[in-house]
Amino acid sequence: MLRKIIREPLVHFLAGALLIFAFFWATGTGRDPADYAIRIDETDIDRLTTDWERNFRRAPTQAELDGLIDQEIAEEIYYREALRLGLDKNDPVIRRRLFTKMRFIDSEDAENVPPTDAILQQWMDEHPGKYALPPLYDFEQIYLGQIGATQARARIDQLNDGARSAAFAQPISLPSNVKAATIEDVSRQFGDRFAAQLGRLEPGQWVGPVASGFGVHAVKITARQPGRKAVLDDVRQRVTNDWHASRQTAQKEKALARYREQYEITIAGRR
């Protein structure tokens, strides 16, 4: 009797259907290319409406909602037709997109865990040089133009003797007075060449000439705050961002290692 049942075509059909069902269940895909039924339920409509409201700050009209639904149906049709043609196979763009989505899924939990102050402080202690606060400079500068060093020094001496800056200043779209600037701030405004000389200047008097890409300047350092070790409140957001990034990377690598254990990997030319 058992052999007779096994030979029945209906049994073969049901077994094949069961295998197909098991395949799609195991691979987690929600799309069966052989399925020609498309259902737009209330969840889909709510999603389309919410996306529209986020973009346009208002609810869609009925005509606009009908257009969104038609677009959703068209995308689903083309998606399934593409699967039937195997267009998802060996496509580097799709491969990269799926890789990116899997990496995002593997690191998603890291974004949802808020670090405590103790965790952030430990991270800072493990990376002491990364969060040191740089020196800050207050200074005045007078653009002397594109003149020689001898002439520039003569004008700087006159400034220190009490000459008015207006007698020598050339017009330029740079601030004449700068407060609490880091070397990076100065570099963005005056250029790397100018910023590199700032730390060597004596404060309290006009010095120079200090060269930039524009020409030469007379500079007076009026205040200098030395660099110092940061406390958590100074750099909390940077530390939090770095901690999350490190946690995401660790989770991604852990997930990849777990996946690799399931694969037998062979590379040409390597043992």
Rank of each mutant, 00 (worst) to 15 (best):
S187R: 07
R103N: 15
V216I: 06
P33A: 12
Q151H: 12
I183N: 11
R103S: 13
P171K: 10
R200L: 10
R270E: 14
T249N: 08
A167Q: 14
S165T: 14
L14W: 07
L65N: 00
K89E: 14
F13Q: 11
V178N: 07
A223D: 12
Y259A: 12
G208Y: 03
D109I: 14
R200N: 12
R95I: 12
V210F: 05
G30M: 12
I77M: 08
V219W: 01
A169L: 05
N90D: 15
A118H: 05
K220N: 11
I6A: 13
A149F: 04
A166P: 01
A163M: 07
T240V: 01
Q141S: 00
F104N: 14
S187I: 03
E72Y: 04
A74S: 09
K220L: 11
A34S: 15
A211F: 10
N241F: 03
A167T: 13
P92G: 09
I156R: 01
G145T: 00
I172L: 13
R84T: 09
V113T: 15
L133H: 06
Q151P: 03
K254T: 14
V239R: 02
R271N: 14
E108R: 14
D91I: 07
T116M: 08
T116R: 09
L201G: 05
T27G: 06
L136I: 01
T100H: 11
A152R: 00
R238P: 01
G145V: 00
L48H: 04
E64I: 04
Y79T: 12
A166K: 15
W206K: 01
Y263Q: 13
I69M: 06
V210S: 05
R260V: 04
A181T: 04
D161W: 07
A167H: 09
S246H: 06
A63R: 08
H12V: 01
Q262K: 11
N241V: 05
I73N: 02
T27S: 12
R271P: 07
S187E: 11
I77Q: 05
Q225I: 05
G204Y: 05
D192Y: 10
E64K: 03
R80N: 04
G148I: 03
K254S: 11
G16Y: 09
R39E: 14
A163N: 07
R95D: 15
A63V: 09
L133C: 06
D44M: 03
I40F: 03
D91H: 11
P115K: 10
E8D: 13
L68T: 00
A196D: 12
R193P: 05
E75I: 06
R3V: 14
I119W: 04
V216N: 02
E81Q: 14
Y137Q: 03
